[in-house]
Design a binder for these strands. Structure first.
Length: 582
RNA sequence: GGGGCUGUAGUUCAGUUGGUUAGAACGCCGGCCUGUCAAGCCGGAGGUCGCGGGUUCAAGUCCCGUCAGUCCCGCCA
């Protein structure tokens, strides 16, 4: 048979009477005795084939035996359907192919699940047969969107003088940040490379080298526990710029984001993006990655709580509330569910009461006397059928618990419009966090510049120093994060000291980098986009695995090829590695 | 590391208070059928109830452990 003349998503009434050759997979079969309909599918679409025993030239018995996902080549004539037989659901629905000849190119075994319906199998089975799941329209679309996003990113950045430069995948292990994936060196016994958690140091060194605008679409690896938006290997759009401050970076990145949404999905994002300081985001939304598609802001409730007779309130650092309408939609069961959510965030409980006709009811309402109730109704602007959820705890727990509840309430009340995109920059992060031992740890990473005028300020009140970091959040997803970096080696060294890294450690881990900073470093800063999360937003998926061709499970297994797997003793011996039997 | 949910036919699920031979739909196999597009009709095959242990006269069902998937907390600069 000749090579294919058209794809399965191409033919319309314009090609009526044309002789064509098509290739594709059997998507569905409708057998009617002497006439057989087959939908032939490729990535471009579906075309209906008609096999009529009267006109078909080949062996009709072969056609009768075809099964789903067989690969075919067919020859036939494009034929306009009767108007009553049009299929409006597919592009090629006006025509069908009157087949004269067929070649069964390759047979398919009976399938482990129904390919036309992704819900016909659980995810573990679909991942084992990922090549079959990837034939579904949904995943094909997701990967097409991903492709368009790569191209949009490259064209925007390239047109704005950013150079795409590759950095090593085998690199030095450093102690900061996430757990490294390690790669043993055969040549250097007992030594290891690490896979990059990000190309952070390389891109800063590229700035020192004078490539004042760099980007890379690059795989990064972090050996930490996974989530629905986290994979052990993931893709970043890694970007760095010289002679800029945070506003230059944010401006370019807004334009990049806008360009990507416009080219890939024809969505216009309003610029400039909204900006929120970290402390305002935590205070109002209980999250450093707030979803701004709905309101439900947190309100300070301490003033009223302290006037109540509810003793639990009296010891708490912070008391916050979220005020919600539609109290009648919150059953006992739903409130219990919200309480569980609050508890997973560390809250000891979730207090609540409902607002009736100028009085409170349910929950902890009895701890508020009539005067206090009226005062609250007045000053908090409460109306009938409101419900208030209250958490009293440390400031952090009160905010994050209510932040989690805020999101669940929005889902429960259907307040989230899925077609809307609300980007927001989060700025003014604290420079440092602290661990259980009260030791300072970097909130962003140790190369982030502090927001100070004088190096001596680093000696004072470290917990209140802000950094020059910024995150881009869209609809509650942290899509990008970056900062202006330390280009003064003295400040960089000082920060390592504050992080309690001793001189030897600094020398052996980062010595080469501090040394590099001393040879004429331009002021610089950058950002990295979580490319998978960005594609997830563009595709409307709620799961990162749906936008990655071959993802791993939440325990970092690849169910299709069964990695990770054991290796031979010979391989281990070459690497001088011994496995502990336990 | 901790918690929630899930695991029964090829697949998705049902399976009552622990009680006879574990059901349905789709898929598969066979038959009928010339206008379907989730085709229809008739018939058939198909099960170590994730795995291991325990309680019991009796376990898909209860208990303990374990494995896998998933969601969340910790963690992920």
């Amino acid at each position: 048979m000749e090579h294919r003349t058209h794809t399965c998503g191409q033919l319309t009434s314009k090609e009526n009477d044309l002789k064509v050759v098509l290739n594709g997979w059997v998507n569905s079969i409708r057998l009617h005795g002497q006439i057989i309909f087959i939908d032939l599918r490729d990535r471009y679409g579906k075309t209906q084939l008609v096999f009529d025993s009267k006109t078909f030239l080949g062996d009709f018995e072969i056609v009768k035996k075809l099964s789903l996902e067989d690969v075919l080549a067919i020859e036939g004539i494009v034929s306009l359907r009767a108007q009553s037989a049009f299929n409006k659901n597919i592009i090629t629905g006006q025509i069908e192919i009157l087949v004269s000849n067929i070649l069964l190119v390759n047979e398919a075994k009976p399938l482990p699940f129904v390919i036309s319906n992704r819900n016909s199998a659980e995810e573990n089975l679909r991942l084992k047969y990922r090549y079959l799941e990837l034939r579904t329209e949904e995943l094909q679309n997701n990967l097409i969107i991903r492709h368009k996003a790569y191209q949009a990113v490259r064209s925007y950045l390239s047109n704005n003088d950013f150079l795409e430069i590759e950095t090593p995948v085998l690199m030095k292990s450093t102690p900061e940040g996430a757990r490294d994936y390690l790669v043993p060196s055969r040549i250097h016994e007992g030594r290891f490379y690490a896979l990059p958690q990000s190309p952070q140091l390389y891109k800063q060194i590229l700035m020192i080298a004078g490539f004042d605008r760099y980007f890379q679409i690059v795989k990064c690896f972090r050996d930490e526990d996974l989530r629905s938006d986290r994979q052990p290997e993931f893709t970043q759009i890694d970007i760095e710029m010289s002679f800029v401050d945070e506003y230059h970076v944010m401006d370019y990145m807004e334009k990049l984001t806008k360009h990507v949404f416009k080219t890939v999905k024809n969505i216009e994002l309003d610029t400039p993006f909204e900006k929120l300081t970290w402390s305002k985001a935590m205070d109002s939304y209980g999250s450093d990655k707030p979803d701004l598609r709905f309101e439900l802001k947190l309100t300070d409730f301490k003033e009223y709580a302290l006037k109540s007779s509810f003793k639990t309130f009296f010891e708490a650092d912070a008391i916050k509330t979220v005020i919600v309408n539609n109290a009648d939609l919150f059953t006992r069961k739903k409130i219990d569910n919200l309480t569980d959510i609050a508890k997973t965030c560390g809250a000891k409980g979730l207090a609540w009461f409902k607002v009736g006709n100028n009085e409170l009811s349910g929950g902890i309402s009895k701890f508020f006397d009539e005067d206090l109730s009226l005062e609250m109704i007045e000053t908090l602007n409460l109306s009938e059928n409101d419900i208030l959820f209250i958490v009293a705890d440390s400031h952090k727990v009160a905010c994050t618990a209510l932040g989690a509840i805020r999101i669940e309430i929005a889902k429960h009340l259907n307040l989230i419009d899925v077609g809307v995109f609300k980007p927001v920059w989060i700025t003014d992060f604290p420079m440092f966090d602290h661990d259980d031992m009260d030791q300072l740890t970097p909130m962003h990473h140790p190369f982030t510049a502090p927001k100070i005028d004088n190096i001596n300020d680093l000696n004072l009140d470290q917990k209140n120093i802000l950094s020059r970091a910024y995150d881009l959040t869209i609809n509650g997803n942290e899509v990008a994060g970056g900062s202006i970096r330390n280009y003064d080696p003295k400040i960089q060294s000082k920060i390592f000291e504050l992080l309690k890294m001793n001189k030897d450690e600094i020398d052996s881990k980062f010595g080469f980098f501090i040394e590099a900073l001393k040879y004429g470093t331009p002021p610089h800063g950058g950002i990295a986009f979580g490319f998978d999360r960005l594609v997830m937003l563009l595709s409307g998926s709620d799961n990162i695995r749906d936008v990655i061709a071959f993802p791993k499970t939440t325990s970092a297994n690849s169910l299709m090829d069964n990695s990770p797997s054991n290796v031979s003793n010979l391989q281990l011996e070459e690497l001088n590695i011994k496995i502990n039997e336990s």
